[in-house]
Design a protein around this nucleic acid. Structure first.
Lengths: 340, 340
DNA sequence: TTGAAAGCGCTAACAT
DNA sequence: ATGTTAGCGCTTTCAA
């Protein structure tokens, strides 16, 4: 059984398509009698308006594009959940893509989708995009009237609404916490040095050190690339026996460091304290559990979606762009010494 | 700057829309000269065909719907990645929704989307749907000619292509492994008793016990509901001091059991062995690390997407439905004794 | 209260 | 080689 259209219904009752359309929209122009019979018929036959046709006329699809670098990342998964909830509650669908940190995938997706299918985009820049600093795909989209909200990994280069995590403050908070708990030399472990948030976190770390009257030792800021062997790099770091704390800029390096430290029989947190970003399940259940900076991913998603939908719906395409910044929180666990 | 259409281009060169359309499709009917100038103009002005209009004519949207019960679940996240990859490689977009284990969300989503927006659905049933056993939304969709692929949590009630994990065999494999490693009394911890896969896993467990000449003790099959306090329930289970192995039917109960066992100073695996389903990061990095049954989520996703796209594209709407079953693998870790 | 007609942007069969 | 026409399914203005 094929899908039924206005035309079919019109034929059934020997009325015009317009009458059927109006009836189904419960227009006052139509008599209650005809409305009733048409509505009943439609319901009985599971009539569903064709959204493509409708969107073509209305120039609104009620669909948003979401581009996320990696869904296996706990933070992004949470953001996605937040976006999804808000979108659903406001009647929007989501077309979602995983850029997999690839610039070309990101570009292709945007190209593909800014063709009428979407009312706007929510996205976080892929690592490669941030390395290349090529943002033309975003700029073009905006020029063509597609609204965009950038979250987490953003850039000054593009004029649009943004939702960021206060990474600088987060790293500052983490570093200060380590200092207060008595740590003397704190190393930073970063595999995110290519992306905006990584850089901000390093800044926050430096700021905290300076504020407490310490010097920044560049060699304590360990940037590990994708090609390098993580374990080897870490062992080299740990050969500096005076390091007594690790600030890991994301989850995975924290977990891997922890495994290594345990192998090497470090006592945690006595000999080595640890804090990491991204408050997923892992840091919570690993032992010792790891003190984390929560970035409130779900809120980031919710706010991003709201920002985008508001801009689309209220036709405030000319309204000034805003950047909302979410504060982080520190969740104390076993990998740091209590602050007395 | 607004989006440019065939009409605009046609006006620009004083030709018909058809000529423009053909030029952009590089038709041999059009002279190279006109084709060139039209293509150049289109490129320069970033012309993108409106997909809505195109889909309306073609009756194909090249878009699939994906409904997943919970994206924070490692298995489903992997499935999603698999679907995404295949879909992208074959030129399909994904409209994705999280049912959040809710029947009504699942129904609403399907209602909303089987309106021309989609060529088909890939979905896994929500827990609530499996409890209510209401599958009319799926049946209607199929009647209306929307192709569906069900994965992981499936039902016999609906006639469509399916991709399942061999849960029975997985649980059988896990149980046999525990038996071979010397475990005497194996308890099953299930918070999935409402869903198909949960039941299959229990069956696999029973089968393995019987095969090894043991009896099935129903009280060793612990079904913990959402409302019950997990910890209290587990403590009660563990009051039976003869239990020396836990088969956890998913990740979270395994992790929580592990925390509890460590608190209670169990030696793992000597006094208590453990195996759980879902091979995510958690079982790997927790200590002791947990032996798991991998369900190969990404493959499940890939196969599902392929099955769906094949059916859509090859117009084999009448082809017999298939069910593909993915074998699990056992990944040995520290929570089980080696098989010597 | 109902209907005719135009149009959203595109495709495709059929002229010319 | 180019154009005309009809139509996908729907909304909306204007006319009856």
């Amino acid at each position: 059984m094929k899908r039924i259209t206005l035309k079919h219904i019109a034929q059934e009752f020997n009325v015009s398509i317009a009458t059927v359309s109006k009836s189904l929209h419960d227009s006052h122009e139509i008599s209650t009698a005809t409305k009733n019979k048409i509505q009943a018929f439609a319901r009985k036959h599971h009539y569903r308006p064709n959204n493509l046709a409708r969107s073509l006329v209305n120039k609104r699809t009620k669909t948003l594009g979401v581009i996320i670098p990696n869904i296996m990342n706990n933070f992004f998964a949470k953001v996605f959940v937040g976006i999804e909830e808000v979108a659903a509650s406001r009647g929007y669908n989501l077309i979602s893509c995983i850029s997999n940190e690839s610039y070309s995938k990101e570009v292709k997706t945007m190209e593909l989708l800014k063709n009428g299918t979407l009312d706007g985009f929510v996205l976080s820049l892929s690592e490669e995009t941030q390395i290349r600093q090529s943002y033309d795909h975003l700029k073009h989209a905006i020029e063509q009237g597609v609204s965009i909200v950038l979250f987490d990994r953003v850039t000054e280069e593009v004029q649009c609404d943004k939702v960021t995590v206060d990474d600088l403050e987060g790293a500052h908070r983490a570093t200060s916490h380590l200092i207060k708990s008595g740590c003397k030399r704190i190393a930073v472990i970063s595999i995110l040095d290519n992306i905006s948030v990584g850089k901000l976190r390093v800044e926050g770390y430096k700021k905290a050190l300076l504020e407490s009257g310490r010097e920044v030792e560049e060699k304590l800021i360990v940037r590990i690339g994708k090609e390098e062997d993580f374990e080897t790099a870490m062992k080299f770091v740990l050969s500096d026996k005076n390091i007594d704390a690790l600030l890991c800029l994301e989850e995975s390096s924290a977990i891997r460091s922890l495994v290594l430290l345990k192998q090497m029989n470090y006592r945690i947190p006595e000999e080595m304290s640890m804090i990491c970003f991204t408050n997923g399940e892992l840091p919570k259940y690993v032992s010792p559990s790891i003190t984390t900076i929560s970035q409130h991913g779900k809120s980031v998603g919710e706010i991003s979606a709201r920002l985008l939908i508001d801009r689309i719906e209220e036709d405030k395409e000319e309204a000034p762009y805003q950047t909302k910044t979410i504060k982080t929180s520190l969740i104390e666990r076993e990998s740091t010494r209590p602050l007395s």
